[in-house]
Design a protein around this nucleic acid. Structure first.
Length: 285
DNA sequence: TCTAACCTGATC
DNA sequence: GATCAGGTTAGA
């Protein structure tokens, strides 16, 4: 569910509410949903900062420890009064001062909560393999990343090792705005297309953050509220409807195993290179 | 490099 | 009952 704009919105909500607060303990209501790396969930800390890296939420704690949360598909992280009954699928609860709690809810359990010594977390391959942040990513850097990949551009942009934070909704929106077919091989983008991508990545992500992210189904911010960017999706979830730019009927196909929305006219397929003329029809595959 | 699998719940 | 979902990744 949550991509960079949604995660950023949660982070901003948490910054406003829990930075400087005392976190007494972290309690796992399901043992397998909290992983402790070199620390003890009952020690107590002060929350010093809340940050985002890709789609990960990082709650920085005193003593160089950190609570890291990846929301997976259906995760929600919110601050609620202790008096409120726990929602179904509440797996981890952080007990804060002043009668409030940080609650992690995740029906599908694709998400992940770790309490770790920061150096241990940051030494992990999963952390170190993350690609650069898309906000502030320049054309030169993106060109280098894409040149090394022969997969579909959609798959490349979804790959967190390439760029960290994009997901299915925003990749579809970005490719549509850039006029690039999602199946085009990443290393075949032209310079002008890379420039368009860079520009649209910034613009769309910033607009989506300003709108508080997209709520299709599960996504909620740290206060339990919805985002509104879904009303401005131009292709995602609009298959069968008219393209807002050219009127052509939008299509939905499968690329990189993900439902992919695009406009056949604005994002034309580009053939792999005119086949060299051969008199004989021997196939060289 | 790609698919299947991990889960539950909503919708067809 | 079958299918699909905003993510990731272990295996083939």
């Amino acid at each position: 569910m949550p991509e960079l704009p949604e995660v950023e919105t949660v982070v901003r909500g948490l910054q406003a509410r829990i930075v400087g607060q005392r976190l007494h303990s972290v309690v796992a209501r399901r043992g397998d949903m909290l992983e402790c790396l070199g620390t003890d969930p009952g020690r107590g800390w002060q929350v010093t900062a809340v940050r985002r890296r890709g789609k990960m939420i990082l709650v920085d704690l005193t003593r160089s420890e950190v609570l890291s949360v990846h929301l997976g598909m259906s995760g929600q992280l919110s601050v609620e009064p202790r008096s409120r009954p726990l929602a179904d699928h509440t797996h981890v609860v952080g007990e804060l001062e002043g009668g409030i709690e940080l609650r992690y809810v995740d029906p599908r359990r694709f998400g992940r909560v770790q309490l770790a010594r920061r150096p241990l977390l940051e030494a992990g391959v999963r952390w170190r393999a993350l690609g650069p942040e898309p906000l502030g990513l320049g054309a030169v850097a993106l060109e280098r990343i894409l040149a090394a990949r022969t997969t579909a551009i959609k798959a490349a942009l979804l790959d967190q090792h390439a760029v960290a934070g994009l997901g299915n909704i925003y990749v579809d929106e970005i490719l549509h705005a850039s006029g690039i077919h999602p199946s085009l091989e990443a290393n075949r983008l032209r310079p002008a297309e890379i420039d368009a991508l860079v520009e649209n990545i910034q613009r769309i992500l910033l607009d989506a953050i300003a709108a508080g992210g997209s709520t299709i189904r599960d996504y909620r911010n740290a206060e339990g509220g919805s985002g509104s960017f879904q009303s401005r999706h131009r292709v995602y979830g609009r298959a069968g409807q008219g393209c807002l730019r050219c009127g052509e009927t939008l299509r939905k196909i499968l690329v990189a195993g993900r439902g992919t929305h695009f406009c056949p006219r604005c994002q034309p397929r580009r053939r792999r290179r005119p086949r060299p003329r051969r008199r004989s029809s021997k196939r060289a595959t």
